[in-house]
Design a protein around this nucleic acid. Structure first.
Lengths: 242, 242
DNA sequence: CACCATTATATTGTCGACAATTTATCCATA
DNA sequence: TATGGATAAATTGTCGACAATATAATGGTG
């Protein structure tokens, strides 16, 4: 039996420690599968940013009725991945420097808060597991595996968000912002650098959480995200210039 | 032509200064009207908190097809007003002390941020209008009108949120949290006290914004919301005790 | 040639019916 | 009587068709 929403449309429970399929979501109905597939296609750029989403077209493409497409689009709207106008239709959001700025501005505040609450509310076991995760990432980095890149970073942030134990916060971040963040990262090709430095930042954050130092945890998380923003903004500016 | 969403599903533009119909939303389609009506009924308690939402039942009650009811429920889910489980159905959220705490925890952070950004981004004209609004509220309070209660407070916060100029933040607050906040307030009968003190707090916040003092604006807003939370939490605890 | 009104096409909004799943009822058995 | 499984009822999920609206094409007029 799968819980659908309110605060946690797709946060069931973590089912495996490594290589998760992003948030352990599980499709129970045809509409779910379509939604996940569509979201994936948008995030990964298979459907171009800014392009129009035709209901009839998508219904044939994904081999489902227009009704499930409409529902999927509505859910995508909640994720801030598409915009919708009445009687006109839906478009995939455009990726702009301003949008990125606003997104990371909010993310900085919310994830900073998450880190603070995590320092306050995570169980000792969760903290231990977080340290474990960090250790496994350390190995990956040393071995030069690019595994860490996306999944590792996402997983790290994911755990701290969950650790905040605030359902509203969890829902806003995981359901409302994270896929859009991924969309920016994926489509700008943010697989590259900043790995080792980001890893060190992660380490310090976990240390602060271990020490139950709320203030420091929040500050370090905010700074971590700020750096990340600067990094991606630089890339985006370079792309626009070319 | 009405814009439906992404970041601002229902923020068209302010159309009148006083006695606004909450956020100047405008229903263009049958589904819109149903959604607004349903939301209103939930917020005001005409549909009991925690009760189940039967699609067929609602479709007869509101005289529309099940499809529009389903869409309305989906949108209500985005507002955090209902929970939904696959193949089972939707329920109106329950009002609990824990939920209230989590809600205001997030609200404090986000509206604090909004105040800070407002101090940074509001135009001089917007600030002037804000001062005007405050003056009109002052009259209302002195004349003992209870006008101020809901609409006034909502309007005040509304303007500051809009003043932040961050669409993600605006959407999260106005679309994701505010109606739930209202639901708590309305159903707990929060029309009463704290008017004059809240008004003073508003005054100081506006002053900080006028001075472009971001730090102070954020701090005062956070404190303002904290007080509000304590006030409503006291009420809720009293209700549960009886 | 440009511009506006009108018509034609395409897309979204709404509806009722059927399929799949869950919940309730009933009966048999220990 | 309590429990378990099978059947029946009710609810949600999915579908195709029609209605309403927006967009594109057409033609007429200055």
């Amino acid at each position: 039996m799968v819980f659908y929403s309110l605060h946690c449309r797709q946060i069931i429970e973590r089912q495996c420690n490594a290589s998760m399929t992003f948030f352990a979501e599980q499709a129970v109905t045809s509409g779910d599968k379509t939604f996940y597939q569509l979201r994936r296609d948008i995030v990964e750029g298979n459907i171009a940013a800014g392009s129009k989403l035709s209901e009839t077209e998508l219904s044939t493409k994904y081999a489902v009725s227009r009704a499930v497409i409409r529902e999927a689009i509505n859910r995508l709207e909640s994720c801030n991945l598409v915009e919708r106008k009445a009687n006109i239709g839906a478009r995939v959001v455009a990726l702009t420097p301003e949008g990125l700025l606003e997104l990371y501005q909010v993310r900085e505040s919310l994830e900073g808060m998450a880190a603070r609450l995590a320092a306050q509310n995570m169980s000792q076991q969760e903290i231990d597991e977080l340290n474990q995760l960090l250790a496994s990432h350390s190995e990956s980095v040393q071995q030069g595996q690019n595994y860490y890149q996306e999944a590792g970073d996402v997983d790290f942030h994911y755990r701290i968000i969950i650790g905040s134990k605030n359902q509203h916060l969890i829902n806003m971040l995981l359901n409302g912002l994270y896929h859009l963040v991924r969309m920016y990262r994926v489509q700008l090709g943010m697989a590259g650098p900043r790995v080792t430095t980001a890893f060190d930042e992660h380490k310090h954050i976990v240390q602060a959480i271990s020490n139950r130092d709320e203030e420091l945890a929040e500050m370090l998380m905010r700074r971590h995200i700020l750096y990340s923003k600067n990094n991606i903004a630089r890339k985006l500016a370079a792309d626009n210039a070319s």
